[in-house]
């Protein structure tokens, strides 16, 4: 029973991380109908930039949480710039091109970001220093660490903030209008190019935050961390209903749970034939099943034409 509860706690935390990354995919998809394949790499850039700042400050005597905050604040503008440039250079000129073209440029941008990261930070795995207390709390027999609590709190706050932004502000209204019909939004005086730009930047800043959270959670950062993370977050976004903010959250948590419980129990279920080394397969199976049987996701609207 405790094991099950522990797996659930781990799954929810993992899911919160996926949800944070998924928000970036879902926002861009909601506005442009484009899958920004390079979003996972933005997350990676965020994690490594923050790490550089953190490593500079680690001996300074500042308290851990403050250092972590400074790390996030350092990563945010870098990711914002990456998001802005990416949209301007690689996506905007192709907005009316056949769908294959932006997909290929997105792959190109992914590769560029990955190998810029290699040139700057090298190929090795970087350990993230311990910045938060490690002593876990007891939750009905399961353990939950301060880092995990922080992730849950931040993910919830981000989610709430984003929902408020989209539904309660002028900018949010412009974003929804652009998502609904860019042509008409433009006629109504919305500067849709600016809205798209802002969406990318916002998504990228969330990516920075997510990157730091992921790295703190696993205590590790690496130039290739973005790929599989991005793919799983994308799965989460699709599972919840891509283009739908709440869906990203639901999809993320669900995927986190599936993965934690699946890899926790697959060994017992298959008599040891399949082990947790098949963990990544779950996300792919979920993705494939959802896309085939319910491409609009759990909370999504009908997107059959786009799928």
């Amino acid at each position: 029973m405790e094991i099950l509860l522990q797996q659930i706690v781990n799954g929810v935390v993992l899911g919160a991380v996926y949800a944070l990354v998924a928000l970036g995919y879902t926002m861009v998809y909601g506005i442009l109908g484009l899958i920004n394949f390079a979003h996972g790499e933005v997350v990676m850039v965020g994690a490594l930039t923050a790490l550089t700042a953190i490593n500079l400050l680690v001996g300074s005597g500042l308290p851990g949480p403050v250092i972590l905050l400074i790390g996030i604040l350092a990563a945010a503008p870098v990711c914002l710039a990456v998001g802005y440039l990416m949209e301007r250079i690689a996506y905007r000129p192709l907005r009316n091109a056949p769908r294959l073209a932006p997909l290929i440029t997105a792959i190109g941008v992914s590769i560029i970001l990955q190998y810029l990261a290699v040139l700057i930070w090298g190929r090795s795995y970087h350990a993230y220093p311990e910045l938060l207390p490690t002593a876990p709390f007891d939750l009905f027999g399961a353990r939950i660490t301060p880092t995990q609590i922080l992730i849950l709190v931040l993910a919830t706050l981000t989610m709430v903030g984003l929902l408020l932004l989209v539904h309660k502000t002028r900018l949010g209204r412009a974003m929804r209008a652009t998502a609904e019909n860019p042509g008409i939004a433009r006629l109504m005086g919305v500067d849709t190019d600016r809205i798209v730009s802002i969406t990318f930047m916002l998504g990228s800043v969330l990516g920075a935050l997510a990157g730091v959270m992921v790295s703190v959670n696993y205590s590790i950062a690496h130039y290739q961390m973005g790929f599989i993370l991005g793919l799983k977050a994308f799965t989460a976004a699709v599972l919840g209903g891509i283009g739908n903010l709440g869906g990203a959250m639901v999809g993320g948590i669900l995927l986190g749970l599936i993965e934690a419980l699946g890899s926790g129990y697959i060994g017992d279920l298959t008599g040891g034939v399949f082990g947790s080394n098949y963990r990544d397969v779950f996300a792919f199976f979920v993705l494939i099943l959802v896309l085939i049987f319910r491409p609009s996701g759990l909370l999504g609207e009908k997107l059959a034409d786009r799928a």
Partner: peptide, 18 residues
Amino acid sequence: LRMLMFGVALVAVMLYRP
């Protein structure tokens, strides 16, 4: 550097010769 050039080439070709 090689991979970086590859990435740049992908973007450039799609922009100028889709």
